[in-house]
Amino acid sequence: MATEAESGTGLVFHPMDQFIVKPLFGDVIHWYTPTNVTLWMGLAALCVIALMVFGTTGRATIPSRIQSVAELAYGFIYKMVEDVAGKDAVKFFPYVMTLFLFIVFSNFLGLIPMSFTTTSHFAVTIVLALLVFLTVTIVGFIKNGVHFLELFWVTSAPLALRPVLAIIELVSYFVRPVSHSIRLAGNVMAGHAVIKVFAGFAALAVVSPVSILAITAMYGIEVLVAFIQAYVFTILTCVYLKDALHPGH
């Protein structure tokens, strides 16, 4: 954000200003107002379409570079869904693919300086996580009926322990969307905020080389985090889907 630094008193840190949601035109934010959220989500969608649609228009048997990347992403997520959630989870593949591509492109677009990171917002990640949670719960009950509750009844444990375990399992089940969403937003937000803090120190001439080095290092880590968090979110989605399709331990 351009409004940072020099406020007269020397070092000023506004590490969180980068996350402020602003309208693109006008001042007021209604639910339909085009904001920087709209802009960067739109760019993420465009990137997805560019890679997966325009990158594959050739339908070449010997793929071009972009088509190779698209096929790699396809194979990566397809295999993940098949291996982790089971063969019958393949019908959820487009859904999982949507989540993965949206998160991975949002994360990487967020790494562009001056950009806005949509996945750093709990509003976004909580919705993503709740979608998964609701899907898993609804599919679980539709597919297995009451047997879905066996997920909470650990038959391999001694009978006396089972009620206790059931409570623990139930709590952990409902904590899932919370951890699922906060893990993603928290990781992304923390990294970006730390970079901003280092950038604030760069105003001091003595410290600035160290600061720049630190920003570079953090940026490298953030590139890793951007992919790993998308991967973690996706694979957890697959793990939860497996619970819905094959409950029981």
């Binding site: 339909y32 107002t33 904001t35 997805v48 949507t98 917002h121 976004v124 919705v127 979608l131």
Partner: peptide, 17 residues
Amino acid sequence: NQIFWLMVTLVVIYVVL
């Protein structure tokens, strides 16, 4: 606002994919 645009984006990506 965020949730609205998120749903729009997800639906677009899902349909296209």
